[in-house]
Design a protein around this nucleic acid. Sequence first.
RNA 1: GGCCCCAUCGUCUAACGGUUAGGACACCAGGUUUUCAUCCUGGAAAUCGGAGUUCGAUUCUCCGUGGGGUCACCA
Length: 486
Amino acid sequence: MASTKEIVRFAPSPTGYLHVGGARTALFNWLWAKHTGGEFHLRIEDTDQARLVKDAEEQIKESLEWLGLKWDGPIVHQSKRVKDDVYLEYAKQLIKSGWAYVADESEEELKEVKNRQKEAIKAKQPLPPYPSREKNIPFEKFKSGKGMVIRFMWPDEPKAMDIEYFNLSKDPWTTHIDPKTSPSSFEDFVLIKSDGFPTYNFSHVIDDHELGVTRIIRGDEFTSSLNKYVALHEAFGWKHPNYNHVPPILGKGDTKLSKRDGAKDLLEYQKEGYLPEAIANFISLIGWRPKGEQELFFSLDELAQAFSLEGIQKSPGKFDPEKLDWMNGEHLKQKGIGEVIALAEAGSFWKSTDEAYDTKVLGLALERVKTLADLKAVRGGFFYKKPNVTKEKLVGGENPETIGVWLEKTQRQLEALPEKDWTTDQVKDELTDVLEEEGLVPKQLYPVLREALTAEPQTPAIWEIMGVLGKKETLERLESAASLVA
RNA sequence: GGCCCCAUCGUCUAACGGUUAGGACACCAGGUUUUCAUCCUGGAAAUCGGAGUUCGAUUCUCCGUGGGGUCACCA
């Protein structure tokens, strides 16, 4: 358990809302920070001016808060650091030390080089250099908005790298990136874009270093760029953090997540009545497995304690909405009724008018409910309004007069039960007496009572319903039903 | 297409080279029960294919096949 404290981060770009995949990445980082007693930081990577989505940052923060993933320290905004010229300073440093250069190719020149590069990549030849490499344009000449960029400068003969993108297990996962077989990985990639903003490749390396990040847990789409990040760290003379890349979450089909199987904004799950603990529990289990066979973790702390990097899977996992529903139901059952009511009310799934009564109702409803949203139907159902009983359903195939007799007998029997003895058990006994005295079997009487009390085919046990409704209401409903067959 | 990575029931997954290949969700059957739900019991259900190493391969090696990622002035 006592791993050294790790400093991790979640660094979303506000170009879209947070969805399950991103949430899992955030969760893994958070869990690992908690597990090691370290820190979890939040950084907003808002360097792509064109793709910025206005409320994305708000939605992301709200989602994290809803999940219960609190971040340590202030939020870092890359756009703010751009204003402070932080990245430009670092780029300058790299140019000075010969690891970067200002490039000023015209669009035509660029197109031409790219074409030649493509051919070289096909032929697995070293990439033809950008003409600017030789120009030695001083950093001071770099101006944003003039079609100029700053590029990383690979050595003439870059070496192949074997990089671990998942250590902390007996067999570290490694990737092999070789200029001989994959020249494109050794392109002089852009550090500073022509608009003066840094690329992800550049900014995240700097920010992670400044934050003191010890381990980067992120999606595995970055694995093939790892050589760039390592090279950048080496160029600065820094030690690179550990990398832990996790496989993606797939949709029910074979490819990427679709809206219906999980690629929703995280807050949609809130709207649909899922519990944040259940969501966290569920998504943690896509691509991760604890030591034992335990699958249900009712709190984030419990999860954090069980969390380990070794349990992370190497292949993509699929999102199974059915298991989510099951799990949410389990989490719901785990909670006290009062808490469920409070949560349901907070989510506008419930409106409490009589707490004692609500508690009794929920006592019956909770075990047949998957989400808080399901409670809406309960709140609008027969416990809270007179049933719409029809004579047809009440009678079934029987003689109406017979039904009338049964109802009347039941009324009289229950009438005799004093209010103070009106409990589920007592009511059940009374009903048993009715059965005996009328020579009936449950199958005959109960469907009639069910219709009379609820007008629904599937409900909790008759006596449980009566117990909750109370003597007065029960007798009223029976009377009202009896009048239909009178 | 090149490069990198991966491969166990339908799904999520377990199994220091030796297990009747285990669990969970979903599914089916039975039990409890007036119905539904819960609960209990049981069932069906998997090592991608082919070589090799080994006394023995889900596990190690190679080839094939399939899937994923990546090849940007996006992150």
